[in-house]
Design a binder for these strands. Sequence first.
DNA 1: CACAGTTAGTTGATTTTGCACCCACCTGCG
DNA 2: CGCAGGTGGGTGCAAAATCAACTAACTGTG
Lengths: 175, 175
Amino acid sequence: MVLARLILGLLCLSPMTGYELKKHFDSSINHFWNADKAQIYRTLAQLVDQGYATVRTVPQSNYPDRQEHHITEAGREVLNQWLSSGAARSPERDPFMGQVFFAAELERDGIEQLLIERRQATQYVLDDYLSQREGIDMRAAADRRSFLMAATLDHAIRQQAAELEWLDAVLEHLP
Amino acid sequence: MVLARLILGLLCLSPMTGYELKKHFDSSINHFWNADKAQIYRTLAQLVDQGYATVRTVPQSNYPDRQEHHITEAGREVLNQWLSSGAARSPERDPFMGQVFFAAELERDGIEQLLIERRQATQYVLDDYLSQREGIDMRAAADRRSFLMAATLDHAIRQQAAELEWLDAVLEHLP
DNA sequence: CACAGTTAGTTGATTTTGCACCCACCTGCG
DNA sequence: CGCAGGTGGGTGCAAAATCAACTAACTGTG
């Protein structure tokens, strides 16, 4: 359901193939959502037979035909509905916190290793987000659309930074 | 899979019925995981026939029999394995960030409303976490187990606090 | 030339999750 | 007395998500 709305959002920016959608999920959108190829194509098909999108097959000379998906008026409507519906909070879910919660089963070294590994992974993700942000900073803030898109990345950056601080605090005070 | 491990973790603390597990997911564990009743009972059955847990039916005078689930040695092993395996990062997923990302489809008022609503919800969740923490603070930090459990709650608190700051920043600078 | 990688899309099977029910019996409140 | 709410356990079904293949042709590199 959320996926369907996100795809509509992307189609709203510009018509796209499933392949291109997948690339967005892997890059511009990866800091707040991800999706499997198969899931994307199936949702796309579903959107079409709900009348929220239409397909136009665009032949190409050297590559496979593009199945360009366009959002319809009905699609725009449900997207707007979703945006103004204040959707319910999705429950927090973090397997790593589960590991920490029960980490006392390990010896001290094991716990430290768990935290340090996570620290590295988090730092890596943060660096990725930071380098993504470099590509937009200046000219964003200008129009509202770019501002909001950049803002979601900032959110991800803040979250990762907060996690790093937390990891350091835990490592420091671990009895 | 994660759910199965979390249940093993809880059973490791003390033998429990599915009903009691559900209560933990709704209270002590709710800041990093949640689970449906049905899912818990099914996973429990699965753990039993994998040999990671055993059931002991404890009759009660006035209430239904308790199906007390005990973790086995094999169960302890897979739990420890999971804890020291540094499980892959679960992808970030936040429908609300999706709404923000595409919020430019709304008018300014709609966007502000979206953010303000979220602000309230987040404040509410944060307050809940803060009051949960009051019940543990002092005597935690003592042993490692309590420290780590409290730490996961602190993590959730930091995340919510960071989100509040972010929301305020976005509201302030929204063009 | 061989091989890895990219573009584009599809299928089948399985797992995970969520929702809505259902049972039985108990306690406490008005 | 009736009825809400707690204790304890469960089923059936449908979505959502993941995993793993498979098709088919092109492009660039060593």
